[in-house]
Design a protein around this nucleic acid. Sequence first.
DNA 1: TATGTTTTGAGAATAATTTAACAAATCATC
DNA 2: GATGATTTGTTAAATTATTCTCAAAACATA
Lengths: 209, 209
Amino acid sequence: MKKENISDAVIRRLPRYYRQLTDLCARGVVRISSHSLGQEMNITASQIRQDFSCFGEFGQQGYGYNVEELRAEIGHILGVDNDHHLIMIGVGNLGRALLRNFPFSQTGFSVDAAFDVSTAVVGSSVNGVPVYAMEELESYIEKHSVDVVVLTIPQSVAQDTANRLIELGVHGFWNFTNVELSSSNPDVKFENIHFADSLLTLSYRIANR
Amino acid sequence: MKKENISDAVIRRLPRYYRQLTDLCARGVVRISSHSLGQEMNITASQIRQDFSCFGEFGQQGYGYNVEELRAEIGHILGVDNDHHLIMIGVGNLGRALLRNFPFSQTGFSVDAAFDVSTAVVGSSVNGVPVYAMEELESYIEKHSVDVVVLTIPQSVAQDTANRLIELGVHGFWNFTNVELSSSNPDVKFENIHFADSLLTLSYRIANR
DNA sequence: TATGTTTTGAGAATAATTTAACAAATCATC
DNA sequence: GATGATTTGTTAAATTATTCTCAAAACATA
Protein backbone atom coordinates (compact mmCIF):
# COMPACT_ATOMS: atom_id res chain seq x y z
CA MET A 1 0.00 0.00 0.00
CA LYS A 2 1.65 3.20 -1.20
CA LYS A 3 2.11 5.63 1.65
CA GLU A 4 1.78 9.38 1.61
CA ASN A 5 4.38 10.27 4.20
CA ILE A 6 7.42 8.06 4.43
CA SER A 7 9.21 7.97 7.76
CA ASP A 8 12.79 9.06 8.04
CA ALA A 9 13.77 5.61 9.30
CA VAL A 10 12.69 4.08 5.99
CA ILE A 11 14.38 6.74 3.84
CA ARG A 12 17.68 6.21 5.63
CA ARG A 13 17.60 2.51 4.81
CA LEU A 14 16.98 3.01 1.09
CA PRO A 15 20.56 3.85 0.11
CA ARG A 16 21.76 0.69 1.78
CA TYR A 17 19.24 -1.38 -0.18
CA TYR A 18 20.40 0.37 -3.31
CA ARG A 19 24.03 -0.49 -2.58
CA GLN A 20 23.23 -4.11 -1.85
CA LEU A 21 21.17 -4.43 -5.00
CA THR A 22 23.94 -2.85 -7.06
CA ASP A 23 26.28 -5.45 -5.63
CA LEU A 24 23.84 -8.27 -6.40
CA CYS A 25 23.55 -7.00 -9.97
CA ALA A 26 27.32 -7.01 -10.31
CA ARG A 27 27.38 -10.57 -9.01
CA GLY A 28 24.88 -11.51 -11.69
CA VAL A 29 22.04 -12.38 -9.29
CA VAL A 30 18.75 -12.11 -11.17
CA ARG A 31 16.16 -12.57 -8.46
CA ILE A 32 16.09 -12.48 -4.68
CA SER A 33 13.57 -13.03 -1.91
CA SER A 34 13.12 -10.68 1.03
CA HIS A 35 14.33 -13.55 3.18
CA SER A 36 17.71 -13.99 1.50
CA LEU A 37 18.21 -10.26 1.04
CA GLY A 38 17.57 -9.94 4.75
CA GLN A 39 20.15 -12.58 5.51
CA GLU A 40 22.79 -10.79 3.44
CA MET A 41 22.01 -7.45 5.04
CA ASN A 42 21.38 -8.75 8.53
CA ILE A 43 17.87 -7.35 8.81
CA THR A 44 14.47 -9.05 8.93
CA ALA A 45 12.56 -10.00 5.79
CA SER A 46 9.55 -8.30 7.34
CA GLN A 47 11.29 -4.99 7.49
CA ILE A 48 12.38 -5.23 3.89
CA ARG A 49 8.86 -5.98 2.66
CA GLN A 50 7.40 -3.31 4.89
CA ASP A 51 9.91 -0.74 3.61
CA PHE A 52 9.37 -1.51 -0.06
CA SER A 53 5.61 -1.55 0.31
CA CYS A 54 5.70 2.16 1.17
CA PHE A 55 6.50 2.87 -2.45
CA GLY A 56 4.58 0.25 -4.36
CA GLU A 57 4.50 -3.45 -5.15
CA PHE A 58 7.84 -4.40 -6.61
CA GLY A 59 7.81 -8.13 -5.92
CA GLN A 60 5.91 -11.15 -7.04
CA GLN A 61 4.51 -13.81 -4.76
CA GLY A 62 6.31 -17.12 -5.04
CA TYR A 63 9.14 -15.48 -6.98
CA GLY A 64 10.57 -12.60 -4.97
CA TYR A 65 12.08 -9.48 -6.48
CA ASN A 66 13.85 -9.01 -9.78
CA VAL A 67 17.17 -7.55 -8.69
CA GLU A 68 17.78 -5.23 -11.61
CA GLU A 69 14.21 -3.96 -11.60
CA LEU A 70 14.15 -3.37 -7.86
CA ARG A 71 17.47 -1.57 -8.02
CA ALA A 72 16.10 0.72 -10.70
CA GLU A 73 12.96 1.41 -8.67
CA ILE A 74 14.87 2.33 -5.53
CA GLY A 75 17.37 4.33 -7.53
CA HIS A 76 14.47 6.21 -9.03
CA ILE A 77 12.92 6.86 -5.60
CA LEU A 78 16.25 8.23 -4.39
CA GLY A 79 16.67 10.29 -7.51
CA VAL A 80 19.89 8.83 -8.92
CA ASP A 81 18.47 9.33 -12.40
CA ASN A 82 17.76 12.99 -11.69
CA ASP A 83 19.89 15.76 -13.07
CA HIS A 84 20.61 17.59 -9.82
CA HIS A 85 22.96 20.51 -9.85
CA LEU A 86 25.36 21.09 -7.02
CA ILE A 87 27.91 23.69 -6.03
CA MET A 88 30.51 23.60 -3.29
CA ILE A 89 31.33 26.40 -0.89
CA GLY A 90 34.79 26.03 0.61
CA VAL A 91 37.64 24.40 -1.28
CA GLY A 92 39.92 23.42 1.58
CA ASN A 93 41.36 19.99 2.20
CA LEU A 94 37.99 18.36 2.68
CA GLY A 95 36.32 20.11 -0.22
CA ARG A 96 39.16 19.15 -2.53
CA ALA A 97 39.08 15.56 -1.30
CA LEU A 98 35.37 15.37 -2.13
CA LEU A 99 35.77 16.99 -5.54
CA ARG A 100 38.54 14.55 -6.40
CA ASN A 101 37.11 11.35 -4.97
CA PHE A 102 33.40 11.45 -4.50
CA PRO A 103 31.37 9.91 -7.33
CA PHE A 104 28.81 12.70 -7.55
CA SER A 105 27.56 11.63 -10.95
CA GLN A 106 26.65 8.16 -9.66
CA THR A 107 24.23 9.75 -7.24
CA GLY A 108 22.57 11.94 -9.85
CA PHE A 109 24.50 15.12 -9.13
CA SER A 110 26.68 17.20 -11.36
CA VAL A 111 29.16 19.53 -9.69
CA ASP A 112 29.05 22.78 -11.60
CA ALA A 113 31.11 25.20 -9.56
CA ALA A 114 32.98 25.81 -6.34
CA PHE A 115 33.47 28.98 -4.34
CA ASP A 116 36.12 30.08 -1.88
CA VAL A 117 37.38 33.18 -0.12
CA SER A 118 41.05 32.39 -0.72
CA THR A 119 42.66 34.17 -3.66
CA ALA A 120 45.08 31.26 -3.78
CA VAL A 121 42.43 28.93 -5.19
CA VAL A 122 40.01 31.33 -6.92
CA GLY A 123 40.50 31.04 -10.65
CA SER A 124 41.88 27.52 -10.46
CA SER A 125 39.89 24.37 -11.02
CA VAL A 126 39.75 21.12 -9.09
CA ASN A 127 39.00 17.97 -11.01
CA GLY A 128 37.43 20.08 -13.74
CA VAL A 129 35.32 22.17 -11.37
CA PRO A 130 36.04 25.91 -11.61
CA VAL A 131 36.62 27.81 -8.38
CA TYR A 132 35.03 31.26 -8.14
CA ALA A 133 35.26 34.04 -5.58
CA MET A 134 32.53 34.27 -2.96
CA GLU A 135 31.52 37.64 -4.38
CA GLU A 136 30.37 35.90 -7.54
CA LEU A 137 27.91 33.67 -5.67
CA GLU A 138 24.82 35.83 -6.16
CA SER A 139 25.33 36.38 -9.86
CA TYR A 140 26.13 32.72 -10.38
CA ILE A 141 22.98 31.47 -8.71
CA GLU A 142 20.86 33.99 -10.61
CA LYS A 143 22.11 32.48 -13.84
CA HIS A 144 22.27 28.80 -12.93
CA SER A 145 20.00 26.29 -11.27
CA VAL A 146 21.38 25.01 -7.97
CA ASP A 147 19.67 22.17 -6.11
CA VAL A 148 22.22 21.42 -3.42
CA VAL A 149 25.08 23.33 -1.84
CA VAL A 150 27.92 21.46 -0.19
CA LEU A 151 29.19 23.38 2.81
CA THR A 152 32.85 22.60 3.49
CA ILE A 153 33.65 25.83 5.27
CA PRO A 154 34.62 26.78 8.82
CA GLN A 155 31.89 26.47 11.48
CA SER A 156 32.06 30.15 12.25
CA VAL A 157 30.64 31.21 8.89
CA ALA A 158 28.32 28.26 8.31
CA GLN A 159 24.94 29.68 9.35
CA ASP A 160 25.59 33.08 7.75
CA THR A 161 26.59 31.46 4.50
CA ALA A 162 23.55 29.19 4.62
CA ASN A 163 21.28 32.20 5.21
CA ARG A 164 22.80 33.98 2.25
CA LEU A 165 22.10 30.96 0.08
CA ILE A 166 18.59 30.37 1.41
CA GLU A 167 17.87 33.99 0.54
CA LEU A 168 18.91 33.14 -3.01
CA GLY A 169 16.46 30.24 -3.14
CA VAL A 170 18.66 27.26 -2.34
CA HIS A 171 16.88 24.56 -0.35
CA GLY A 172 19.30 21.68 -0.13
CA PHE A 173 22.40 21.70 2.02
CA TRP A 174 24.98 18.98 2.46
CA ASN A 175 26.55 20.28 5.62
CA PHE A 176 30.04 19.15 6.66
CA THR A 177 30.46 21.75 9.39
CA ASN A 178 30.00 20.53 12.92
CA VAL A 179 27.09 22.86 13.69
CA GLU A 180 23.35 22.44 13.43
CA LEU A 181 21.98 24.66 10.70
CA SER A 182 18.39 25.76 10.57
CA SER A 183 15.87 27.70 8.56
CA SER A 184 12.39 28.93 9.31
CA ASN A 185 11.38 27.53 5.93
CA PRO A 186 10.55 23.83 6.40
CA ASP A 187 11.20 23.21 2.71
CA VAL A 188 14.89 23.91 3.22
CA LYS A 189 16.57 20.58 3.90
CA PHE A 190 19.82 20.04 5.73
CA GLU A 191 21.75 16.81 5.62
CA ASN A 192 24.63 16.77 8.05
CA ILE A 193 27.90 14.91 8.09
CA HIS A 194 29.00 15.45 11.67
CA PHE A 195 32.39 13.77 11.84
CA ALA A 196 32.94 14.55 15.50
CA ASP A 197 29.52 13.27 16.53
CA SER A 198 30.17 10.07 14.67
CA LEU A 199 33.55 9.47 16.28
CA LEU A 200 32.16 10.25 19.72
CA THR A 201 29.44 7.62 19.41
CA LEU A 202 32.16 5.15 18.48
CA SER A 203 34.17 6.28 21.48
CA TYR A 204 31.16 5.54 23.69
CA ARG A 205 30.53 2.16 22.16
CA ILE A 206 34.07 0.84 22.39
CA ALA A 207 34.23 1.95 26.02
CA ASN A 208 30.87 0.31 26.87
CA ARG A 209 31.07 -2.87 24.87
CA MET B 1 16.99 6.00 37.13
CA LYS B 2 20.31 4.81 35.72
CA LYS B 3 19.75 2.38 32.90
CA GLU B 4 21.71 -0.72 32.06
CA ASN B 5 21.38 -0.69 28.31
CA ILE B 6 21.21 2.66 26.60
CA SER B 7 19.44 2.78 23.27
CA ASP B 8 21.27 3.84 20.17
CA ALA B 9 18.87 6.74 19.69
CA VAL B 10 19.99 8.25 22.98
CA ILE B 11 23.69 7.74 22.29
CA ARG B 12 23.40 9.47 18.94
CA ARG B 13 21.93 12.53 20.60
CA LEU B 14 24.67 12.88 23.19
CA PRO B 15 27.28 14.49 20.93
CA ARG B 16 24.79 17.17 19.98
CA TYR B 17 24.08 17.91 23.63
CA TYR B 18 27.80 18.09 24.18
CA ARG B 19 28.22 20.57 21.34
CA GLN B 20 25.38 22.74 22.54
CA LEU B 21 26.69 22.74 26.09
CA THR B 22 30.17 23.64 24.88
CA ASP B 23 28.62 26.56 23.05
CA LEU B 24 26.67 27.62 26.15
CA CYS B 25 29.87 27.46 28.20
CA ALA B 26 31.61 29.69 25.67
CA ARG B 27 28.71 32.12 25.89
CA GLY B 28 29.16 32.22 29.64
CA VAL B 29 25.81 30.64 30.47
CA VAL B 30 26.02 29.11 33.94
CA ARG B 31 22.74 27.26 34.31
CA ILE B 32 20.02 26.07 31.99
CA SER B 33 16.67 24.32 32.29
CA SER B 34 15.63 21.43 30.10
CA HIS B 35 12.95 23.72 28.74
CA SER B 36 15.28 26.44 27.44
CA LEU B 37 17.87 23.92 26.28
CA GLY B 38 15.08 22.25 24.36
CA GLN B 39 14.09 25.54 22.77
CA GLU B 40 17.64 26.21 21.61
CA MET B 41 18.00 22.71 20.19
CA ASN B 42 14.49 22.38 18.88
CA ILE B 43 13.67 19.25 20.87
CA THR B 44 11.31 18.65 23.78
CA ALA B 45 12.32 19.22 27.38
CA SER B 46 10.94 15.78 28.12
CA GLN B 47 13.32 14.11 25.77
CA ILE B 48 16.27 15.93 27.26
CA ARG B 49 15.36 14.92 30.80
CA GLN B 50 14.61 11.37 29.72
CA ASP B 51 17.94 11.15 27.89
CA PHE B 52 20.01 12.48 30.77
CA SER B 53 18.22 10.33 33.31
CA CYS B 54 19.65 7.23 31.60
CA PHE B 55 23.02 8.13 33.05
CA GLY B 56 22.19 9.64 36.43
CA GLU B 57 20.71 12.69 38.05
CA PHE B 58 22.59 15.72 36.78
CA GLY B 59 20.01 18.40 37.48
CA GLN B 60 18.43 20.01 40.47
CA GLN B 61 14.75 20.67 40.91
CA GLY B 62 13.87 24.33 40.76
CA TYR B 63 17.31 25.18 39.40
CA GLY B 64 17.96 23.18 36.25
CA TYR B 65 21.37 22.02 35.13
CA ASN B 66 24.75 23.57 35.74
CA VAL B 67 26.07 23.97 32.22
CA GLU B 68 29.74 23.34 32.89
CA GLU B 69 29.01 20.36 35.12
CA LEU B 70 26.57 18.81 32.66
CA ARG B 71 29.00 19.32 29.81
CA ALA B 72 31.69 17.53 31.79
CA GLU B 73 29.34 14.65 32.62
CA ILE B 74 28.31 14.11 29.01
CA GLY B 75 31.89 14.51 27.85
CA HIS B 76 32.86 11.86 30.33
CA ILE B 77 30.10 9.51 29.15
CA LEU B 78 31.28 9.96 25.57
CA GLY B 79 34.88 9.48 26.60
CA VAL B 80 36.38 12.81 25.54
CA ASP B 81 38.63 12.62 28.58
CA ASN B 82 39.86 9.18 27.59
CA ASP B 83 43.25 8.64 26.08
CA HIS B 84 42.18 6.68 23.04
CA HIS B 85 44.76 5.72 20.46
CA LEU B 86 43.95 5.78 16.80
CA ILE B 87 45.68 4.89 13.57
CA MET B 88 44.64 5.61 10.02
CA ILE B 89 44.75 3.18 7.11
CA GLY B 90 44.82 4.94 3.77
CA VAL B 91 46.44 8.35 3.31
CA GLY B 92 44.69 9.55 0.17
CA ASN B 93 42.91 12.85 -0.27
CA LEU B 94 40.32 12.12 2.38
CA GLY B 95 42.76 10.66 4.88
CA ARG B 96 45.03 13.65 4.51
CA ALA B 97 42.13 16.06 4.86
CA LEU B 98 41.16 14.39 8.13
CA LEU B 99 44.71 14.34 9.47
CA ARG B 100 45.08 18.02 8.69
CA ASN B 101 41.68 19.30 9.77
CA PHE B 102 39.93 17.02 12.18
CA PRO B 103 40.36 17.92 15.87
CA PHE B 104 41.04 14.38 17.04
CA SER B 105 42.45 15.50 20.38
CA GLN B 106 39.22 17.33 21.27
CA THR B 107 37.37 14.05 21.07
CA GLY B 108 39.84 12.18 23.25
CA PHE B 109 41.84 10.57 20.47
CA SER B 110 45.50 10.80 19.65
CA VAL B 111 46.53 9.88 16.12
CA ASP B 112 49.69 7.83 16.43
CA ALA B 113 50.36 6.52 12.95
CA ALA B 114 49.07 6.14 9.42
CA PHE B 115 49.58 3.35 6.91
CA ASP B 116 49.42 3.25 3.14
CA VAL B 117 50.35 1.02 0.23
CA SER B 118 51.82 3.82 -1.86
CA THR B 119 55.59 4.20 -1.73
CA ALA B 120 55.02 7.85 -2.60
CA VAL B 121 53.71 8.61 0.90
CA VAL B 122 55.35 5.89 3.03
CA GLY B 123 58.11 7.48 5.06
CA SER B 124 56.56 10.93 4.95
CA SER B 125 54.44 12.44 7.66
CA VAL B 126 51.16 14.35 7.54
CA ASN B 127 50.52 16.94 10.20
CA GLY B 128 53.08 15.22 12.39
CA VAL B 129 51.66 11.73 11.88
CA PRO B 130 54.20 9.29 10.40
CA VAL B 131 53.11 7.18 7.43
CA TYR B 132 54.23 3.56 7.45
CA ALA B 133 54.00 0.77 4.89
CA MET B 134 51.11 -1.68 5.22
CA GLU B 135 53.62 -4.47 5.85
CA GLU B 136 54.51 -2.84 9.15
CA LEU B 137 50.94 -3.01 10.44
CA GLU B 138 51.28 -6.26 12.37
CA SER B 139 54.49 -5.34 14.11
CA TYR B 140 53.15 -1.87 14.92
CA ILE B 141 50.00 -3.15 16.57
CA GLU B 142 51.95 -5.74 18.54
CA LYS B 143 53.99 -2.95 20.07
CA HIS B 144 51.32 -0.23 20.45
CA SER B 145 47.83 -0.01 21.83
CA VAL B 146 45.25 0.79 19.15
CA ASP B 147 41.64 1.52 20.08
CA VAL B 148 40.26 2.73 16.79
CA VAL B 149 41.29 2.37 13.16
CA VAL B 150 40.16 4.93 10.61
CA LEU B 151 39.53 3.27 7.28
CA THR B 152 40.04 5.71 4.41
CA ILE B 153 40.84 3.12 1.78
CA PRO B 154 39.16 1.86 -1.38
CA GLN B 155 35.97 -0.16 -0.92
CA SER B 156 37.50 -3.17 -2.60
CA VAL B 157 39.99 -3.82 0.20
CA ALA B 158 37.86 -2.61 3.11
CA GLN B 159 36.55 -5.89 4.54
CA ASP B 160 39.85 -7.73 4.05
CA THR B 161 41.75 -4.96 5.81
CA ALA B 162 39.20 -4.91 8.61
CA ASN B 163 39.52 -8.67 9.03
CA ARG B 164 43.28 -8.38 9.22
CA LEU B 165 42.93 -5.77 11.96
CA ILE B 166 40.24 -7.64 13.88
CA GLU B 167 42.59 -10.61 13.89
CA LEU B 168 45.15 -8.34 15.55
CA GLY B 169 42.66 -7.40 18.29
CA VAL B 170 41.30 -4.08 17.03
CA HIS B 171 37.64 -3.57 17.88
CA GLY B 172 36.83 -0.03 16.82
CA PHE B 173 36.49 1.05 13.21
CA TRP B 174 35.68 4.47 11.85
CA ASN B 175 34.69 3.41 8.38
CA PHE B 176 34.69 5.92 5.52
CA THR B 177 34.31 3.32 2.78
CA ASN B 178 30.88 2.99 1.31
CA VAL B 179 30.47 -0.65 2.27
CA GLU B 180 28.92 -2.31 5.29
CA LEU B 181 31.60 -4.01 7.34
CA SER B 182 30.89 -6.82 9.72
CA SER B 183 32.45 -9.15 12.23
CA SER B 184 31.20 -12.26 13.97
CA ASN B 185 32.51 -10.73 17.19
CA PRO B 186 29.79 -8.44 18.59
CA ASP B 187 32.42 -6.54 20.56
CA VAL B 188 33.87 -5.19 17.34
CA LYS B 189 32.19 -1.85 16.67
CA PHE B 190 31.84 -0.16 13.31
CA GLU B 191 30.89 3.46 12.92
CA ASN B 192 30.23 4.38 9.32
CA ILE B 193 30.46 7.64 7.44
CA HIS B 194 28.58 6.78 4.29
CA PHE B 195 28.85 9.92 2.17
CA ALA B 196 26.82 8.56 -0.69
CA ASP B 197 24.00 7.34 1.55
CA SER B 198 23.84 10.74 3.14
CA LEU B 199 23.66 12.62 -0.15
CA LEU B 200 21.03 10.23 -1.48
CA THR B 201 18.72 10.86 1.45
CA LEU B 202 19.10 14.56 0.75
CA SER B 203 18.34 13.92 -2.90
CA TYR B 204 15.13 12.17 -1.85
CA ARG B 205 14.10 14.91 0.52
CA ILE B 206 14.60 17.84 -1.81
CA ALA B 207 12.62 16.01 -4.49
CA ASN B 208 9.77 15.17 -2.09
CA ARG B 209 9.53 18.37 -0.07
C1' DT C 1 10.33 31.34 57.97
C1' DA C 2 6.27 31.09 54.87
C1' DT C 3 4.52 31.28 50.03
C1' DG C 4 4.40 30.94 45.33
C1' DT C 5 7.28 29.63 41.30
C1' DT C 6 10.36 26.78 38.88
C1' DT C 7 12.08 22.56 37.60
C1' DT C 8 13.54 17.88 37.92
C1' DG C 9 13.03 12.67 37.58
C1' DA C 10 9.91 9.10 37.19
C1' DG C 11 5.87 6.73 35.82
C1' DA C 12 1.96 6.62 32.58
C1' DA C 13 0.22 7.44 28.15
C1' DT C 14 0.84 7.99 23.39
C1' DA C 15 3.14 7.45 19.08
C1' DA C 16 6.25 5.25 16.03
C1' DT C 17 8.77 1.39 14.51
C1' DT C 18 9.67 -3.31 13.99
C1' DT C 19 8.39 -8.03 13.91
C1' DA C 20 5.13 -11.79 13.38
C1' DA C 21 1.37 -14.04 11.12
C1' DC C 22 -1.27 -15.30 7.30
C1' DA C 23 -4.29 -15.26 3.10
C1' DA C 24 -3.59 -14.96 -1.69
C1' DA C 25 -0.75 -15.49 -5.60
C1' DT C 26 2.83 -17.61 -8.15
C1' DC C 27 6.16 -21.12 -9.02
C1' DA C 28 7.97 -25.91 -9.79
C1' DT C 29 7.18 -30.55 -10.51
C1' DC C 30 4.82 -34.51 -11.34
C1' DG D 1 -3.79 -29.57 -14.71
C1' DA D 2 -3.24 -30.81 -9.72
C1' DT D 3 -0.23 -30.46 -5.57
C1' DG D 4 3.05 -28.82 -2.42
C1' DA D 5 6.50 -25.30 -1.69
C1' DT D 6 7.61 -20.27 -1.95
C1' DT D 7 6.99 -15.73 -1.28
C1' DT D 8 4.63 -11.47 -1.37
C1' DG D 9 1.78 -7.49 0.69
C1' DT D 10 -0.96 -6.47 4.42
C1' DT D 11 -2.93 -6.56 8.86
C1' DA D 12 -2.15 -7.35 13.70
C1' DA D 13 0.87 -7.72 17.65
C1' DA D 14 4.93 -6.56 20.03
C1' DT D 15 8.45 -3.67 20.95
C1' DT D 16 10.71 0.72 21.26
C1' DA D 17 10.78 5.67 21.49
C1' DT D 18 8.78 9.97 22.64
C1' DT D 19 5.75 12.95 25.02
C1' DC D 20 2.74 14.08 28.84
C1' DT D 21 1.81 14.53 33.70
C1' DC D 22 2.71 15.33 38.31
C1' DA D 23 4.56 14.80 43.04
C1' DA D 24 8.57 16.22 45.33
C1' DA D 25 12.37 19.19 45.82
C1' DA D 26 14.72 23.41 45.49
C1' DC D 27 14.68 28.23 44.61
C1' DA D 28 13.31 33.28 45.15
C1' DT D 29 11.22 36.68 47.56
C1' DA D 30 9.01 38.86 50.99
